[in-house]
Design a protein around this nucleic acid. Structure first.
Lengths: 66, 66
DNA sequence: AAAAAATGTAAAACAAACTTGACAAATAAA
DNA sequence: TTTATTTGTCAAGTTTGTTTTACATTTTTT
């Protein structure tokens, strides 16, 4: 599972803390998601995608083949 | 959080068990997601959306205002 | 180069998602 | 109207996501 949060944060020029605040989660949640430690819930994915104005599919990409 | 899984299942004419098998989860997982008991992980959302050929946003809709 | 801001990381605790197994209720088919 | 298929639900257990607190490291600004 890959994600492009860092890229979209860069495009919008906001910090992890700012993104966290926008969707009401802790900064560590953003940090750990962004660094691929875990995949967020669908609710968070939708909220993050909404902030960036993109589809969930553009932010999170399935990679494992099963 | 609303979802349209049942509708898309109807369109594709597949059972809960068949959908479950397609994405390698238990039938109960599909059943409970479909009936709104909990929201799936982003990984499952992406897989389900892929099966139906729609975006995650078309399948799961945020409704609570925060 | 020093100070400030941003990011990485870790542990403990809790919440939410998911599984299995098993059975009841409803719907469809024979 | 009996049988088969599909769907609903419950409980217990495991795994994964999320929070909080706290500190270390890296990057940016002055």
């Amino acid at each position: 599972m890959l994600n492009n949060i860092r890229v979209h944060r860069a495009i919008k020029n906001i910090t992890q803390a700012e993104l966290a605040e926008l969707i009401n989660v802790s900064r560590q949640t953003i940090n750990t998601i962004e660094s691929g430690k875990y995949v967020p819930s669908t609710i968070l994915s939708l909220k993050i995608a909404k902030v960036f104005g993109v589809a969930v599919e553009q932010l999170f990409v399935l990679e494992d083949i099963d």
